[in-house]
Simulated assay, not measured.
Amino acid sequence: MLILASGSPRRQELLHLITSDFSVFTSEVDERAITAPTAKELVQKLAQAKAAAVAATHPDAVVIGCDTVVDLDGEVLGKPADKDEARSMMQRLSGRKHFVHTGVCLISNGKEDCFVESSEVCFAALSEQEIEDYIATDEPYDKAGGYGIQGKAAKFCTGILGCYFNIMGLPVSALYRHLRIFGR
């Protein structure tokens, strides 16, 4: 049995690119209680905690835990709480490069395999009106960094170095290779 320890519809959609044979069980991990000195270490610890929480009740399954953050000059940009925070994030990302890191942890029968995939994203310089129009949509509020590359923010992206699917929240190719370790 393969379990995705995430309620994210985007991750479920992306995992379907690898297999349709999986279940979804979300973890009850308090993400605010987990800290780390770097964004990469943070996403790995979060992914590991989520996978471990679900694996504790499904020890024979292969459990996939994930977490994604936007890293702007070493500062983690999570999901914006409101329009002001979304506006601030978009202003800071405007005309800049940033990284998107996704931590992934696979756990089954006590065996654990964790990795972090990173992608670099370049944004065009955005006008205040573009920012206001974007934050008036529902898109920014459930996404790390306050934007969805697969949605209306696609028009702001001038370049990507790395995995596009990683920016959406699940590095499909890397996960496919790591699942082989577990015979999946």
Rank of each mutant, 00 (worst) to 15 (best):
residue 145 G to E: 08
residue 2 L to S: 02
residue 55 A to D: 01
residue 81 A to F: 05
residue 108 S to E: 13
residue 149 I to Q: 11
residue 140 P to G: 05
residue 130 E to K: 03
residue 135 I to Y: 04
residue 184 R to M: 15
residue 167 I to D: 03
residue 171 P to I: 00
residue 159 G to R: 09
residue 130 E to L: 05
residue 67 D to Q: 06
residue 114 C to N: 10
residue 121 V to F: 00
residue 88 S to Q: 04
residue 59 P to M: 01
residue 11 R to K: 04
residue 151 G to K: 11
residue 77 L to R: 03
residue 27 S to A: 13
residue 152 K to V: 08
residue 162 G to N: 02
residue 24 V to Y: 00
residue 173 S to C: 09
residue 171 P to R: 04
residue 122 C to D: 12
residue 125 A to V: 15
residue 3 I to L: 14
residue 160 I to G: 05
residue 176 Y to S: 13
residue 59 P to E: 02
residue 156 F to V: 11
residue 143 K to S: 03
residue 68 T to Q: 02
residue 97 K to P: 02
residue 65 G to K: 00
residue 21 D to M: 06
residue 183 G to V: 06
residue 137 T to D: 07
residue 26 T to V: 15
residue 173 S to L: 13
residue 16 H to A: 15
residue 77 L to I: 11
residue 106 L to W: 15
residue 169 G to Y: 10
residue 115 F to V: 01
residue 48 Q to C: 14
residue 105 C to P: 10
residue 73 D to H: 14
residue 42 L to V: 15
residue 37 P to N: 06
residue 139 E to I: 10
residue 133 D to Q: 14
residue 116 V to T: 03
residue 152 K to P: 06
residue 93 L to S: 06
residue 175 L to M: 10
residue 111 K to H: 15
residue 25 F to T: 11
residue 123 F to Y: 12
residue 174 A to G: 00
residue 174 A to K: 02
residue 151 G to N: 09
residue 98 H to S: 05
residue 100 V to H: 06
residue 105 C to H: 07
residue 51 A to V: 05
residue 79 K to N: 12
residue 123 F to E: 10
residue 50 K to H: 00
residue 5 A to E: 03
residue 155 K to T: 12
residue 85 E to M: 14
